[in-house]
Simulated scan of single mutants.
Amino acid sequence: MHVTFVGEKPTGSAPCCSLAKTLEERGFRCSFLEEIESSSTAAWVRRARESDVIILTVYNGPSDFMIRQLALARLLGTRVVRWWVGTDVMKCLDNPLDQRQTNLLNRFLSVNVAVSPHLVDELLSIGIKSQYIASVTTLEPPANLSQRKTLPKSVLVYLPTNRKEFYGGPIVRSAISNNPDVQFLIVADESHSLAKYSNVKSLGWVGNMSDVWDEVGILLRVTQHDGMPRMVLDALQRGKHVIFSWSFPGCVFADSEETVNAAIHELKTGMSVNNEGIAAVEAILNRCPARQFDTLLRDSVESRDLGEASQAFLSVLFQTLRVRWTEMCRKIKPT
């Protein structure tokens, strides 16, 4: 079965990379197409015919042209699944135009999938029904985990170069300043903006996190919005403590400078393995998200939903007229 990922760039820690790797291990053939808009309709039709399922992850829109092309793919028999991972939900909630476009797209989708229960609830608040399948993680738990008694007194922070504000940059800076006896390992910040602090080890982009995990006992993640981050799952699975700005089993909730500093102060006094976190992530992964996704994709291909196809046909007509009208308006010069 051929799955084409559309929308998200398959680089770095992009969720589509982990899902594609997992599906390939289960016998799927996966490919990526970042920009539908850059493909001619003829090229898109060829790509759609080659695909059994399209998995869509977009953080803005979708545009009229994207809806038309996806509707055309569905009309050709390709199933379309939208995968919601976190920030995309936040942006849709905040933008009425994105909500409108999402509802147009939703008319012919096979299914919406969200990576956490709170995303399912948020989508339902704007009329979008979705199915919960936890984030797919490729991590295997360390073999010697049960032998560990204590954890290093150090904190790991994911702080991307161009998204520091979203990932709680000011709160992270406060935590570093107020805990000089704790080492902070900063990953993904290629500007090394916090390297001036004596208790900071700024690593920039890290391709393989295995060695980094061995150096830390706490993950600090304070975001403006989140889904079910694979980094949180990875940390819990390794027995690390997690300070998180969203309520999550096995984590310490903190979403401000005061609560984060209080959480670090409490945790650093006794760095034992987070057995509660291990149990929490095992409960999630025991449902086997990879198998759930596998089943969902195969079932969507086998289904014969004439309603989806008819809505796709209408969407192709409607969106084509919208695209043509927009192009015509742009060509009209004001007098």
Rank of each mutant, 00 (worst) to 15 (best):
S110P: 03
G207T: 08
Q147H: 09
H225C: 12
Q147I: 01
S116A: 15
Y158P: 03
G207V: 01
A175S: 15
C92A: 14
E122P: 01
G169E: 10
E140Q: 12
N178V: 00
I171V: 15
V182G: 12
N95E: 09
I186E: 05
G169V: 00
A114S: 15
K129N: 14
R148I: 11
L219Y: 06
Q224L: 11
V206K: 04
G168L: 02
D226E: 15
L139W: 05
L159N: 08
M228V: 03
M209N: 03
T161K: 13
N112E: 10
R148K: 15
L124K: 15
L123S: 08
L194K: 02
F108E: 04
Q147F: 04
D94Y: 09
V155Q: 01
I126G: 08
E122H: 13
L119P: 05
F166D: 04
I218V: 15
S174L: 00
F184Q: 02
A134G: 14
K196H: 14
T223M: 11
T223L: 12
L233W: 01
P96N: 10
I171F: 07
P96Y: 13
Q147T: 12
I133T: 00
V206H: 06
C92D: 01
N103Y: 05
K129L: 12
V212E: 00
V200F: 06
L220D: 03
N106R: 11
P170G: 05
P152D: 09
R163A: 14
A175I: 03
V115C: 15
R107T: 14
N103L: 14
L97C: 08
L151Q: 09
K164C: 07
I133G: 00
I133N: 02
L109D: 00
I218A: 05
K149N: 11
L156M: 11
V187T: 07
Q131T: 15
Q183G: 00
Y167I: 05
V172C: 09
V216M: 03
G207Y: 06
Q147R: 09
N103V: 07
N179W: 04
E190L: 03
